[in-house]
Design a protein around this nucleic acid. Structure first.
Length: 1011
RNA sequence: GCCGACGUGGUGGAAUUGGUAUACACGCAUGCCUUAGAAGCAUGUUCUCAAAAGGAUUGAGAGUUCGAGUCUCUCCGUCGGCACCA
């Protein structure tokens, strides 16, 4: 009898699998054996190849996906199970700096180590599909996606103060913080004004939130974390006029119901309004307070706790509901980036406001009475009622429940023009630049000449409607046009912004002629034409008629056909013949942009797509400040006209490679180290061809991981980030396994990019990951996190060497519930090793006479096998590996003690164990005489008629306590079961001659007797 | 403060829709084997009472039920997330 030699067996089968290529994934288009098979895409969160190598915690998720992949293979699926490297970013760069190696070399070395370590565990990865985020052929497409975002106005330059880590010397996103500290190095972050690129993830906030509903197979806690992170709040912006001034204070609140109790207003110290409302008497105090607040770090604020501070500005504003004169204060408990940066103080019903008012002697009013009926004045913080009650002292709200009151007062405030309902999010836009070396270069070029070039603008309005159709005083000529005109003129541009004739009953030809007759400059390639709504039609006709090339055309929610989703517009229908020569128009500018309202409330989506398609325009969908872009200020419109001087690197020049340089130390100046490489920075403007400079910031670590799962589907495509047919076949990812710590970063970012890619037609689903599973941490044997610092790290290489990869795989799955944290136990590994040896011995006994008998199984074994097939088949996809393994152990224990074991039963058992312990089962499978891999065999099926014994034990309870057991046939009738239960000696004793009041029979389980 | 998850032997943990609590594994104990140790095998192992019979037991307490680890309420504790978020 030979011994179980894991080293020999594992080496043999690794080599064998590699040679036969059984884990190569077939693509549907060219792989013969994958045709007709259903696909299954199972994915791990790809690792960050750090310098420390893998510890035993890392592979836990990988083992799980490998087990699922092997099960699915055996169940006849075409399985995609890839692996790759997320290798850009701070950790690699900091490691490189510390060890004085180039990050590119360090990364390559780390990947080599990781790959070797993973190789030991016998995974089914198809390494021909390996991706690496630092490979130019990969990040070419990361850059490409960035450029698409840029072209849609979703990537913009900002100078807002952001989180700055003084030790890592880079700006950080909100998601990169932990308790106000840099998540990487633990330094306290500062707020630093910095030029940076920002992605407008907030444009997707609503969809990211709503579509969580679609994620039926995601863990509830992860979804809840995402909901909280997005933080949607419905409320109202209430406008208060400042006394003796034309300035206003606008306060966001979710609790307007308490507004009769508002007695003051607080402005955050960052707010630009402060200087203009502070009276001379208080100027000095306010300035002192503001500058002190600006110098406070996050840590200072935490240290101060809830102790309130603040200064009075000298100004008052009027609460329209009560005519109360509310003093306006400045205080740092109001945050500049939340809501409107100003808060209306209701000290009776908000604890923070109470503390503030109490400290500074501001009046405290009670407007809500809670269940206790107490209507006395509020003098203590414990009396502050925040979340329930009924209105008092609140005029027309009196007697209402707070929720009804909220609705009623919102209606009233809007009706009176004193407020406007708004939705606010906690989610901030994604700060996307890092002032560091080791990241994807942002593929943009800045041209001062182009930036400073002046243009002549024509801004055309649409149909203003009649009083009965659009309401009095509301019309498209009354929108953002004057605001945009002023902004453009401030920059030295000429602007022609006419009120077109007959706007109620427009005639397009007449309006076109009006423009031609009245424009006070030459229309040429230096002209930018903007048209809103029906103004779009004026542009089509104007260009057709002029037949001259212009610089740029921006169509803002343009009319394309006389049909509208909301209502009929007869006068619009009559305004022209609706025949446009788009072929001709297309040639009259190289730069068409269609800006559409993403709710498609006024212009059909199909119309927008049609015109964008015809004109080869860049279609930008955005949420207007007011429906159909009719607000006085529409920043999106201005952004699209704003000439920032930034131009995308032409797609043919991608990838824009990161130059390999000797010196890549962060500068700490707010510039990236790339800024010092003149040869790289100086380039030509893609727009005018003159000298220009490259963007030198790089992308954050999370960029490459936003879309890597798509690249696995088609890893070597040089024409697109993924081939459409392959994407359609493989996407979405069926099963995604990774750590819960990614809930509010990678998983939000990836969902954001995926939705964007869907919008531009690059992918076919709106969500990337169908089913998500989080992995629980493996702690060290001492119960702490594994860390060099504690010297408690366990290296998988050692475990594999001593006990074998199969034992390690088995143990990690047996430790406990998969998503739960659990401490490592070497004793536990030994237990799993013993189990494998037991199976090995069974395999060896095959040579023994009794096992060669191909006759009937022992009946118990037969039933146990069927139960085991059922349990393992159900438990693996549900990630209940621990109970699946327990069941396999039960079977092995029973089989070891049985005198008869059918050969076929043992083979089935090996198949069930194979996903967990692939090497050993493959060896034993071959020993049985099989020529093909066990993973090419079909997964066993159980016989439902054979999972139950013919006789079962039914327990008998008297008054809920277990008193006896009876053995009965499985199909015993209820009356018989009851009769048998009542007639046993023990039960008779417990009944003591009394008549049972009630007898309950639960089929196959128990008889419960009530006395 | 708010939101979420969880609390079962000496340990990791099992337990369909409420239906035999403690499966499986570790550890421990005793025995076999061995010069000895290790490994292996066998038996036992929730607690309590010397044993049997019995009783108690799923963080604590109450409730619903013939029956609660599982459902409801209150409290305590642990972990995770968010946080002067208006």
């Amino acid at each position: 009898m030979s011994k179980y030699d894991h080293k020999k067996i594992e080496a043999k089968w690794k080599k064998n699998w590699e040679k036969s290529g059984i884990y190569k994934t077939g693509d549907p288009s060219f792989a013969k054996d994958s045709a007709g098979k259903p696909k299954y895409y199972v994915l791990d969160m790809f690792p960050y190849p750090s310098g420390a190598g893998l510890h035993v915690g890392h592979p836990k998720g990988f083992i799980a996906t490998d087990i699922v992949a092997r099960l699915k293979m055996m169940q006849g699926y075409n399985v995609l199970h890839p692996m790759g490297w997320d290798a850009f970013g701070l950790p690699a760069e900091n490691y490189a700096l510390k060890n004085k190696v180039h990050p590119a070399d360090a990364t390559a070395e780390n990947i080599k180590v990781f790959k070797k370590q993973l190789g030991l565990l016998g995974f089914t990865y198809d390494w021909s599909r390996e991706v690496n985020t630092t490979d130019p052929e990969y990040y070419k497409w990361t850059q490409w996606i960035f450029l698409q975002l840029f072209k849609k106005g979703l990537a913009f330059e900002s100078y807002e103060p952001i989180n700055w880590c003084p030790s890592c010397k880079t700006g950080l996103a909100n998601e990169d913080l932990e308790d106000g500290k840099c998540e990487r190095c633990g330094s306290v972050v500062e707020q630093k004004p910095l030029r940076q690129w920002v992605l407008k993830i907030t444009d997707y906030a609503e969809r990211l939130l709503n579509d969580i509903e679609l994620l039926k197979e995601w863990p509830e806690p992860i979804k809840e974390m995402q909901r909280n992170w997005i933080g949607r709040k419905e409320g109202i912006n209430i406008v208060y006029q400042i006394e003796g001034s034309d300035k206003k204070v606008i306060c966001f609140t979710t609790r307007p119901d308490t507004n009769f109790g508002a007695t003051f207003v607080v402005v955050g110290p960052e707010h630009s309004l402060i200087s203009s409302i502070t009276t001379s008497e208080y100027k000095e105090d306010v300035e002192k307070y503001v500058s002190a607040a600006k110098n406070k770090t996050e840590l200072d604020r935490i240290a101060e706790g809830r102790e309130k501070s603040g200064v009075f500005t000298g100004s008052y504003c009027i609460n329209n509901l009560t005519d109360y004169k509310m003093p306006i204060w400045v205080a740092d408990y109001v945050l500049g980036n939340v809501g409107t940066g100003m808060v209306v103080g209701v000290p009776g019903h908000d604890k923070r406001d109470f503390e503030f008012a109490n400290k500074f002697g501001i009046e405290i009013k009670r407007v809500v009475v809670a269940g206790d009926g107490d209507t006395s004045p509020i003098t203590k913080i414990e009396q502050v009622q925040e979340h329930e009650g009924e209105m008092i002292n609140s005029g027309f709200l009196d007697g209402l429940d707070i929720h009804d009151a909220t609705r009623k007062i919102m209606d009233r405030l809007e009706e009176k023009g004193w407020g406007k309902r708004v939705i606010n999010y906690k989610l901030r836009d994604w700060v996307f630049s890092r002032q560091r070396y080791w990241g994807e270069p942002i593929p943009l070029v800045h041209c001062e000449v182009c930036k400073n070039k002046k243009y002549n603008y024509i801004i055309l309005h649409g149909y203003t409607g009649t009083a009965d159709q659009n309401g009095p005083g509301r019309g498209d000529s009354n929108n953002w046009r004057p605001w945009v005109k002023v902004k453009l003129e401030e920059r030295g541009n000429k602007v022609f912004c006419p009120n077109l004739p007959n706007t109620n009953e427009p005639n397009i030809d007449e309006q076109v002629q009006y423009v031609i007759d009245n424009v006070n400059f030459e229309i040429d390639e230096n002209t930018v034409i903007v048209g809103h709504s029906l103004g779009g039609v004026v542009i089509y006709k104007l260009l057709e008629k002029l037949n001259k090339k212009v610089g740029k055309v921006l169509l803002v929610d343009p009319v394309v056909s006389p049909e509208f989703p909301d209502k009929e517009r007869l006068n619009v229908k009559k305004s022209c013949d609706w025949k446009f020569n788009f072929e001709k128009i297309k040639k009259l500018s190289d730069d068409f942009v269609v800006l559409g309202a993403s709710d498609f409330a006024t212009i059909f989506e199909k119309d927008l797509r049609f015109v964008a398609d015809k004109l080869e325009a860049n279609l930008v969908l955005a949420k207007p400040a007011e429906g159909h872009f009719t607000a006085e200020e529409e920043p999106v419109v201005l952004n699209l006209l704003n000439n920032t001087g930034w131009y995308p690197v032409p797609e043919k020049d991608l990838p824009l490679e990161l130059p390999k340089v000797k010196n890549y130390e962060p500068t700490g100046t707010g510039e990236s180290p790339l800024a010092g490489i003149d040869k790289w920075v100086n380039t030509l403007c893609p727009h005018c061809g003159g000298p220009a400079k490259r963007e030198t910031n790089t992308m954050p670590q999370w960029a490459g991981s936003c879309w890597y799962y798509l690249r696995y589907e088609d890893p070597h495509n040089s024409k697109a980030l993924v081939d459409k047919d392959k994407e359609k076949y493989w996407s979405p990812v069926d099963f995604y396994v990774g750590g819960a710590e990614h809930a509010t970063r990678h998983l939000i970012y990836a969902r954001f990019w995926h939705k964007f890619l869907f919008d531009i037609g690059a992918v076919s689903n709106i969500e990337p990951f169908t089913k998500l599973q989080s992995v629980g941490l493996i702690l060290a044997e001492d119960g702490r996190k594994m860390s060099k610092r504690w010297n408690n790290v366990i290296n998988p290489d050692d475990v594999v060497a001593e006990f074998g990869a199969d034992a390690m795989r088995l143990y990690e799955m047996f430790m406990g519930p998969f998503d739960q944290a659990c401490a490592w136990s070497t004793k536990g590994v030994i237990g799993c090793r013993r189990f494998l040896e037991k199976v090995w011995v069974l395999g060896e006994k095959i040579k023994d006479e009794r096992l060669k008998i191909n006759g009937d199984n022992n009946k118990n074994i037969e039933i146990l096998l069927n139960q085991t097939i059922k349990k393992v088949t159900e438990d693996i996809p549900a990630m209940r590996f621990n109970t699946a393994i327990a069941q396999l152990m039960i079977f092995a224990n029973e089989a070891s003690q049985s005198s008869i074991l059918n050969l076929q039963s043992f083979a089935s058992f090996l198949q069930l164990l194979a996903p967990f312990a692939p090497h050993m089962t493959e060896e034993l499978w071959a020993n049985l005489g099989n020529k093909e891999s066990i993973f090419k065999s079909a997964w066993p099926k159980f016989d439902p008629t054979k999972i139950q014994h013919s006789e079962i034990t039914v327990v008998v309870q008297v008054n809920g306590k277990l008193r006896d057991e009876i053995i009965v046939p499985v199909d015993i009738a209820e009356a018989d079961a009851k009769a048998r239960a009542l007639s046993t000696e023990k039960i008779k004793k417990w009944l003591d001659g009394k008549e049972p009041k009630k007898v309950i029979y639960v089929k196959g389980k128990l008889v419960s007797i009530v006395v």
